[in-house]
Structure formats: structure tokens, C-alpha cells
């Protein structure tokens, strides 16, 4: 449906999230993180969420906003799938919960995660990737040779929800981003049953140059307008 996408609040956009849901969270090193959605999610009465994000942990002065670590600290998450749980030596709540056995962590190479999400979003059965051939990331997976190079079959990821951050949306859900805060937004938006975009502002149809739209509205189901420290102005 192309209509009725704008929700009055993050809470209402997340009202139907459920126990055990698989949630994609956009953002990279604290940039392009859907902070208002994560904060609202931390207050929902749900548990055992699986969070897929890259990397989970911001650092330095970008970490002032609400991030995946704070969502995990709220006790809503039982599993994180990520290329980088935290920057080395950070000893965040993520690593503490993992050591305490409260959080399951699955590490996945960043480019493999990107292609698994793209395969999920594009309806592919899987992709053969050269990454990880002959390493522990190959274990238990089908392999094939292409032009003498071994490749590993990686399966698609489809999630229940994607939470992404963009700069501006129009009422139909078309999105534009700011700088490299774009990062995971476009690929995650494709790979979820329900994609919720947190944007700085919403404009009428025609308010975005269609030549500049990065994520077409067909991939975006819900929009909330919320300002914040990162992800566009």
C-alpha cells in the first residue's frame, strides 16, 4: 500500500512488534542510527528480539544517541548478528551480556551480511561468495568453484522489521539520505516485511526530486518524523 505511511510516533509505528521478531537496524559507527525508533523499542513490552546491525557499537562522540547497545541493555534482545560487536577494548554492555550468557552473538563478515540482505530483499535463493572460502566461515556450507575460485553459498536474510534512518521522506515513502549516513538503509529497507524509516522531515509528493531518490517508497511501509543528532539535518 502506498498510502497512510506516516505515523504520529515511534511507539505507534512499533505497536505490532512481537516476541522473537528479527529486526534489522541501520547505521554504521553511530551514523545513520534510527535513535528514536530504538528508544521507543526499548520501552515496548517485547523480548527475545534478534538484532541484525553493523557495527552494533558506536564510538567516541557519536555514541551520545540511543544505539543498539542501549537497546540490548534494556533486556529486549537475546541475539545480535553483526560483523563487529564493539570496537576492540570497548567492553560495552554487549560484551558483558555475551560473557554472562544473556546474549547470543553471531559474527558475520560485513560484505556477506550485505549480500545476504540484498538476496533477501531481491528474492534470490542465495548467493555464492568468495569471502570466507577455506576459513571457519565456510564450515557447514555448500561450496562451488567459479573460474577456479572457491565460493561459499550464503543464504538470504529476510527480517520481520527494518528500522532505518534517512534525511527526508515524502508521503509515499521515497527516501533520501545525507552523506555516508546512507550506509545500511537502502539494503535493509528491501529485506524486511515492515520497514520503518525515521526521518528528519516529511514532504508532500513532489517535494523530492525523483532523480535523487535513493530508496523508492515501495520498500518503506511506515515513516516517523523525529530530529536528532545524527543521520542528516
Amino acid at each position: 500500500m502506498a498510502k497512510g505511511k506516516v505515523y504520529p510516533s515511534a511507539e505507534q509505528a512499533l505497536a505490532d512488534i512481537f516476541d522473537g521478531a528479527v529486526v534489522l537496524v541501520g547505521g554504521f559507527a553511530g551514523q545513520g542510527v534510527p535513535e528514536a525508533l530504538l528508544e521507543a523499542l526499548s520501552r515496548q513490552a517485547v523480548k527475545d528480539l534478534t538484532c541484525i546491525c553493523s557495527p552494533a557499537m558506536p564510538r567516541g562522540r557519536q555514541s551520545s544517541g540511543f544505539d543498539v547497545a542501549r537497546l540490548v541493555a534494556s533486556g529486549r534482545v537475546s541475539k545480535v548478528i553483526t560483523p563487529l560487536l564493539e570496537y576492540p577494548g570497548a567492553n560495552s554492555v554487549l560484551e558483558q551480556q555475551r560473557r554472562a550468557g544473556q546474549l547470543t552473538v553471531e559474527v558475520v563478515p560485513q560484505g556477506v551480511l550485505a549480500e545476504r540482505l540484498r538476496a533477501g530483499g531481491a528474492g534470490l535463493g542465495g548467493v555464492f561468495l568468495p569471502n570466507g572460502a577455506g576459513t571457519r566461515f565456510e564450515e557447514g556450507k555448500e561450496t562451488r568453484e567459479f573460474d577456479g575460485q572457491r565460493a561459499v553459498l550464503e543464504l538470504p536474510i529476510r527480517a520481520d522489521f527494518a528500522l532505518v534512518r534517512a534525511q527526508t521522506a515524502d508521503l509515499f515513502g521515497n527516501l533520501i539520505y545525507q552523506g555516508d549516513a546512507r550506509n545500511w538503509g537502502p539494503v535493509m529497507a528491501m529485506a524486511a516485511a515492515i520497514t520503518i524509516a525515521q526521518v528528519d522531515r516529511v514532504v508532500e509528493p513532489g517535494g523530492l526530486d525523483p532523480e535523487r531518490v535513493i530508496t523508492p517508497g515501495i520498500f518503506v511501509h511506515r515513516i516517523i518524523a523525529a530530529g536528532g543528532a545524527t543521520g542528516g539535518r
Binding site: P55, P83, L84, L85, Y87, P88, V107, V108, P109, Q110, G111, V112, N131, G132, T135, F137
Partner: peptide, 8 residues
């Protein structure tokens, strides 16, 4: 571990 994008 910290695989990040190193393997790619």
C-alpha cells in the same frame, strides 16, 4: 572477534 569488512 572483529571480522568487520576484513574478509571481504
Amino acid at each position: 572477534g572483529n571480522i568487520g569488512g576484513a574478509m571481504d
